[in-house]
Design a protein around this nucleic acid. Sequence first.
DNA 1: GCCGCTATTGGACCTTGGGCCAATAGGCCG
DNA 2: CGGCCTATTGGCCCAAGGTCCAATAGCGGC
Lengths: 215, 215
Amino acid sequence: MSPATPVVFIVDDDPSICRSLLRLVRQTGFEGHSYGSAEEFIEVQKGPLMRPACLVVDLQMPGLSGLELQQHLQQGAARCPMIFISGNGDIPSTVRAMKHGAVTFLTKPFDNADLLRAIGEALERHRAELSSDRQVRQVRDRMAELTERELQVMSWVITGALNKQIAAELDIVEKTVKVHRARVLEKMQAQSVAELVRLCSLAGFAAATSGSAVD
Amino acid sequence: MSPATPVVFIVDDDPSICRSLLRLVRQTGFEGHSYGSAEEFIEVQKGPLMRPACLVVDLQMPGLSGLELQQHLQQGAARCPMIFISGNGDIPSTVRAMKHGAVTFLTKPFDNADLLRAIGEALERHRAELSSDRQVRQVRDRMAELTERELQVMSWVITGALNKQIAAELDIVEKTVKVHRARVLEKMQAQSVAELVRLCSLAGFAAATSGSAVD
DNA sequence: GCCGCTATTGGACCTTGGGCCAATAGGCCG
DNA sequence: CGGCCTATTGGCCCAAGGTCCAATAGCGGC
């Protein structure tokens, strides 16, 4: 929850653009780093980002293009919102970038205020994403400590099934279910079934074959 | 769940485009309707859409533009995915359309296959949206039947609070909480607290001041 | 004033959940 | 082979949830 300074990464093959943008973001109070190519950025920024960040990237560059960089990052660890800038971008590129989650697509020459607005939005988006990811990871970590049996029991508990029903389902005695259930709540650090349900839904953990009340 | 034929609305001020697109979508097996202006479409399509639908709309039109139509629909009942087509669209328009949820933005002349692909995606998206909306509406309807007191009790029940705690919180006797709790489960058609939690989270109903296990 | 809805409470009774202590059995590792 | 972990079960007991029947009180409407 530490308010680490947001960082803005700039990827452009034109050094003068890099310098100019760096100056702008630093003046605004962000940390800034620039890279002359997508490959260079990928090389340097391998691990997952631990603080709010965003990318300002040129569409056309020698080597990997902005769109290719976007695609590359989406399946990597260093995902973060991207802002595209381009001197002569086209609509198909814009559509593709936006469909893949770009914050915006600016055409040169652009207004500094527009870029800063976009950066603000990107950082905010990333902040929310990081926070959500942290929660999910935390829940997943706890879930990883469960034994296979406990996982099975949990998947039934969160459907609202009674211990008796779970016991029948797993072909064990009700007493055993109680033991597992208790350990599940303990390991998951949930004070109640309601909270357990919440945690599981947060982590995208599906309940066992349950009948939902809504079609 | 009836597999009603999907419908494609076409909004373009050029009658020949309308005719041509209508022919295309009808040939493909969809129902098609065309309108010569955004206003005309708005006038005809007031109520909420009950089956998969999408809009193919020209960016520039006399009167309301495609973007303005998009904005208008977003706060109305007849929301549905939009596909923009334009002879001379620009990147800012594209960005704006995409940020507001457009499926894609095609430039004339475009490939029929591209349009059909986009229509397919739009209809699929709308199908999912309709299904999700239906669920939410169903839960909301049930919730609307709850008395104020029952609503209060529910908001505590889904935090996992004990009847005793809820009683203290609302300054009533535990017995009363049990009565409300039972009526809540009945009215919400939930077989268990777990299911109730799920329903509430689906409908975006927040729990009472609860302490979550995740920060 | 009577009726219906809602909120509230009481009591009796049964079912469930959960904690505590203890024990057996299989599998894995040093 | 003796620990350690996991799964499993038993008994005992208490707390909490759920159900049925019943009753009082306030409030708006006919």
